[in-house]
């Protein structure tokens, strides 16, 4: 799949989560995503960035602009080298949290995008890839 643009944003602080949202919003606007789709993708990015920060000890987001005529899309890859998720299925369940959150971030992010994948192993960090098509 042709990646026409690529950038990374480091995730090491709350301010970086804000940056992630700003970058994703800007790209989604450039691709002329609808306001609803922009909002959905930015919100998913916010969830995954904060997970990488809070549960994964920080990491980075790789943002890719995809062109696959006639459609275009945005792919976001969140990578951290934290403790990993031992039971992904469980973590995806609405309401499951180990950190006193609402436990809705992962499942919610999945519902907000078109493609969603988690790769993780205990001790090996976590990689969450989401794609939204336009």
């Amino acid at each position: 799949m042709p990646v026409v643009k690529e950038e990374t944003v480091a995730i090491g602080s709350d301010a970086d989560v804000v940056l992630v949202r700003q970058r994703v919003r800007r790209r989604a606007q450039e691709l002329r995503f609808s306001l609803v789709d922009q909002t959905k993708l930015v919100t998913a990015a916010s969830e995954l960035a904060r997970n990488a920060l809070e549960h994964g000890r920080g990491g980075e987001m790789l943002l890719q602009v995809l062109e696959e005529p006639p459609r275009s899309g945005l792919r976001l890859v969140f990578v951290d080298r934290g403790p990993g998720i031992s039971n992904v299925e469980l973590a995806m369940k609405d309401g499951y949290t180990t950190g006193g959150g609402l436990g809705l971030g992962l499942g919610g992010a999945k519902r907000l995008v078109n493609e969603f994948a988690v790769e993780s192993a205990p001790g090996a960090g976590t990689r969450v890839t989401v794609t939204k098509w336009h």
Binding site: R21, S46, L102, L104, G105
Partner: peptide
């Protein structure tokens, strides 16, 4: 601009 789970909380 964004209401995510943390904001909701």
């Amino acid at each position: 601009p964004t209401v995510d789970t943390l904001v909701a909380q």
